[in-house]
Simulated scan of single mutants.
Amino acid sequence: MLICILKLKQAHEEIQQLTASKNTLTEVKGELERAKEKVKEPELTSATWSGSLAVGFEDIRTTMLEEYDDLLTRQLTDAIATIEAKITALQSNIKVI
């Protein structure tokens, strides 16, 4: 009986920690989504800036946007989904105990 109570307590604590982590990652994801648009600032046109430095700078911006996309759509989304799956598994275990 005591072992079941300890397992339940541990599972609830893990769920709380995972939920807090999920919430933090979700907030970070939102902040990164908002910050992503800043990579495009200031807008550079041929009238404001041109030449090899401008092309190089635009290449850097493009790479940064690709990295943002990877971070937002793959890495953070996968991490949040993994946490959600672990929470679901723990909740299922609690029902069995």
Rank of each mutant, 00 (worst) to 15 (best):
M1P: 05
I3W: 01
I3E: 14
C4T: 03
C4V: 05
I5E: 08
L6A: 11
K7Q: 13
K7N: 14
L8W: 02
K9A: 10
K9T: 15
K9N: 10
Q10Y: 13
Q10S: 13
Q10C: 05
A11G: 00
H12T: 00
E13I: 03
E14W: 04
I15Y: 01
Q16C: 08
Q16H: 02
L18S: 06
L18I: 01
T19S: 15
T19L: 01
A20I: 10
S21W: 07
S21Q: 11
K22P: 01
L25W: 03
T26F: 12
E27R: 14
E27G: 06
E27W: 04
V28S: 03
V28N: 06
V28K: 13
K29D: 04
K29F: 06
G30Q: 13
G30D: 11
E31L: 09
L32H: 09
E33S: 14
E33G: 09
R34M: 11
K36G: 07
E37W: 07
K38S: 14
K38H: 13
K38P: 00
V39A: 06
K40I: 10
E41G: 00
P42A: 04
P42D: 11
E43L: 15
T45N: 06
T45I: 04
T45H: 05
T45M: 03
S46L: 15
S46P: 01
T48L: 11
T48R: 13
G51S: 11
G51L: 04
G51D: 04
S52A: 15
S52V: 14
L53N: 15
L53R: 11
A54C: 14
A54Y: 07
V55P: 01
G56I: 07
G56E: 12
G56N: 10
F57Y: 14
I60Y: 08
I60L: 12
R61I: 08
R61M: 09
T63N: 05
M64W: 12
L65R: 04
L65V: 15
L65P: 05
D69G: 07
D70I: 02
L71V: 15
L71Y: 07
L72Y: 00
L72S: 05
L72V: 03
R74V: 10
R74G: 03
R74C: 02
R74W: 00
R74F: 08
R74D: 08
Q75Y: 09
Q75G: 00
L76V: 07
D78T: 12
D78A: 09
D78K: 11
I80Y: 07
I80E: 12
T82E: 12
T82V: 03
I83L: 06
E84I: 10
E84Y: 09
A85S: 15
K86T: 06
T88L: 11
Q91T: 13
K95Q: 13
V96P: 01
I97Q: 01
